[in-house]
Design a protein around this nucleic acid. Sequence first.
DNA 1: GATGTAAATGTTATGATATAACATGTCAAG
DNA 2: CTTGACATGTTATATCATAACATTTACATC
Lengths: 160, 160
Amino acid sequence: MQSEALAFQSHDHAGCSAEALAGAEALAAAKGLRLTPVRRRVLEILLEAHRAMGAYDVLQRLAAEGFGNQPPVAYRALEFLVEQGLAHRIQRLNAFTACMHPGHDHVPAFLICRTCNAVAEAPAASVRVALEAAAAAVGFTVERSTVEALGLCPACTGAA
Amino acid sequence: MQSEALAFQSHDHAGCSAEALAGAEALAAAKGLRLTPVRRRVLEILLEAHRAMGAYDVLQRLAAEGFGNQPPVAYRALEFLVEQGLAHRIQRLNAFTACMHPGHDHVPAFLICRTCNAVAEAPAASVRVALEAAAAAVGFTVERSTVEALGLCPACTGAA
DNA sequence: GATGTAAATGTTATGATATAACATGTCAAG
DNA sequence: CTTGACATGTTATATCATAACATTTACATC
């Protein structure tokens, strides 16, 4: 499996895409989900892009391939993928990315480079633990969390 | 000072508002910022509401009081407040809240109740530490972070 | 294989959020 | 009392998102 530490480094996109797609299919089969043509294609588009994409960017790709060209087509597929943990929403960018390791129960923390716009998913179990502790201290029960950091990726840190 | 632990509990709104406003004025004086009528009024509106408000909600209030009634009026004042740390943006809600303790360098973590929509600012230094450690592990430098949790506040947890 | 049903997709329309661009006003320093 | 920087007002438009309904598809059951 692709190391987390390589998130910002060059690597075999085709390989990690194929792996994520296989994971998605395995998950769909296991849970009886319908990974329909639109949904599967949206996931592929996100995986191929390998970066955060807006719903309308995805829609444009879909329309060019003969799928519907109205916003709900993209939003519904994206919503499905996010619900199933196959994609994530990046609040800060109003955008979506494919999940790099579907099926593994994880708490995503996103690192967004403000210079090159790359987005990486970092292991963040410790962040989740800290957040839940802080919430528990005031009696709050965490159900879902959004953790996003804006800053500089290794390459852009070096360039600066 | 208002304890963090009371964030979700009933308390003296007028008191904490006055305190936050005084803090804002002190900060403005110290940094030579211009806390103009619109900016000050927007901060007051957020403090009085004591919850997250959308830019258009704020705008409506402003317009009713004789300020401009076009979106940029609200967005510019909100942007100023957020930049100065006097208010925060809640990404998940596309909304804004007044900062409850301006001037104290802090990393806000927001707890959003999905039932009553209350938003509380929780102490989250430990979350920031965990996030920075996770980022550093992949060579990423964190500049700003967004930490938001969706779940149930104490009151709504009890009611459920 | 016909048929009923639920889910998915397509489509229309609109709502909600946000910003670019430029005009006008304000105020303090020179 | 002008100039320059910044704030505000205004127009217009860009961008993001969803409600509501029509149509199609998948699939279990008869």
